[in-house]
Nucleic acid binder design. Structure first.
Lengths: 152, 152
DNA sequence: ATTGAAACGAATGAACG
DNA sequence: CGTTCATTCGTTTCAAT
């Protein structure tokens, strides 16, 4: 897919805010008929610019209101060790995001848990068991705000 | 909303993976008819457990492939200063997430930009202009992986 | 690349077990 | 809770431009 024109960007902006909007409604907002909007959305999907459509849940309502970033140092940095660590860490239910990073640590994970007890359990029973993990540092999130989508 | 039963959790799991799935398809996967599935989805929406439905874009395809976490120290920590800082920083197109944090810094932002030039521009022309910002530290993301949704 | 219409399939709500 | 069924509404395709 090449360049996005004004209409494509507007479609993406609206779908980033609410992807259950109907083609019909999109068409009305854009002052076009169904077909061109339909074709544009399909093209954006096929090109991979739209990766997928997901439901966003409220962390508070599902007991995931405590967010912690944990920076991690490893003792080995070979590809196989790092990849195994990544996939095993990401498989833990508390872990939402995994990053290989520059700087003082090798990796960072974002975890979302119910409370401090759940955090302690995660550290003691799960994270600390990894063989090649040598050191970590936890940064607690006091409050946060996310942007709805990308500015195009 | 009270407790989620097995069916609710399955619905949420499927909607977190693909929220454009039809009620009909959902019903087939759950071996139920349309109506109960429809009613459950509406209830999950009304209760706020489902916050919204969003299209996820591919960062690479929209020139946002360089991800950087920037930890920030402020000189003042009053409510008004922090809130103004938060809203102004979040309004910058490069900034996707803003966190008030514990630890050595006061805040952390996640930015997504095209390349190092865009990063440099962000630092020099945008971030550095904030009056109460005193010190910051950038952690570059080398690779990352996100989880599709919450394990319920 | 857009329109308008038509065929099809899904969402919604009533009636009921 | 669940099912079936009827109606409404959106999606998808296509001929024409």
């Amino acid at each position: 897919m090449d360049k996005l024109d004004r209409t494509d960007r507007k479609i993406l902006q609206l779908l980033q805010q609410d992807c259950r909007i109907t083609i019909k409604e999109l068409a009305e907002k854009l002052h076009l008929s169904n077909t061109p909007v339909y074709e544009r959305v399909k093209k954006l999907e096929r090109s991979g610019i739209i990766k997928n459509y997901v439901a966003v849940l409220d962390p508070e309502k599902i007991d995931r209101n405590l967010v912690v970033f944990i920076s991690i140092s490893l003792t080995k940095h070979t590809r196989d060790v790092v990849e195994k660590f990544e996939s095993e860490v990401l498989a833990l239910s508390e872990v939402m995001e995994f990053y290989i990073t520059s700087g003082n640590f090798d990796a960072m994970v974002k975890i979302m848990v119910k409370d401090m007890n759940a955090f302690q359990h995660f550290i003691q029973e799960k994270l600390s068991k990894f063989e090649y993990l040598t050191r970590f540092n936890s940064t607690f999130v006091i409050s946060s705000s996310d942007k709805i989508g990308y500015d195009l």
